[in-house]
Design a protein around this nucleic acid. Structure first.
Lengths: 111, 111
DNA sequence: CTGAATCCCAATCGATACTG
DNA sequence: CAGTATCGATTGGGATTCAG
């Protein structure tokens, strides 16, 4: 049965919600990244979660996966047009995070 | 030990992330609401989750809870100034949900 | 290097029943 | 009306191991 939503926000949360999806999208918003780069940019994520989330985002049409087929392996992830349509959302989340960090005195240590 | 973040988006997700928080904030963005109203506006949420999320949002300083102390009980929830600072985020999530629903043909049935 | 597969624990959640 | 209590089911997620 098809899922239905009672509010547009609910739909959005269903797509970009969860612990890691948004963070990964935010990193890809900065440009193409390899698997290992995303892992390094996202401390705390396990390889299992990284793989799972990337495949979900790919299935939802938000990111593209390009396997260069080389040895050693080289895989690049990028936002699709659909993913890029999230830019205002990602920017709003980013901006609020910065302001909230200042207000609450929390520090953000970029890798 | 204090939690640290590697990215502002991660902080934001930590505060407004999860299945229900954002939806509840989006409803309160429209104005003051009582417990029962929020329950009705949010089909699918259990009373347990509703209570829990409301208390978390209150603890995080995003919403206020006013108990009128009457019989029968009457409790009103509202955004605080801190909660209202999320308006751009909530609006971005809302707008993207509307557009995504159109693109994917998903319908949204407001209660 | 980029994953897939397995095991296992902890947190999360829904349903239901109950209270002031 | 506005919650709380409890229980059982489900899920998320980490650690580890292995493969191409």
């Amino acid at each position: 049965m098809p899922k239905s939503y009672s509010c547009p926000v609910e739909l959005t949360v269903d797509v970009v919600g969860g612990r890691w999806r948004t963070v990964l999208l935010a990193h890809l918003k900065e440009g193409v990244h390899r698997y290992g780069e995303l892992r390094r940019l996202t401390p705390g994520i396990s390889e299992k979660m990284l793989s799972q989330r990337l495949r979900e985002l790919e299935a939802d049409g938000l990111i593209s996966r390009k396997d260069l087929g080389t040895v050693p392996p080289h895989v690049e992830y990028d936002l699709t047009d659909e993913g890029r349509s999230l830019t205002p959302v990602l920017q709003a989340l980013y901006d609020w995070g910065v302001a909230r960090a200042e207000r609450t005195g929390v520090s953000i240590d970029v890798p």
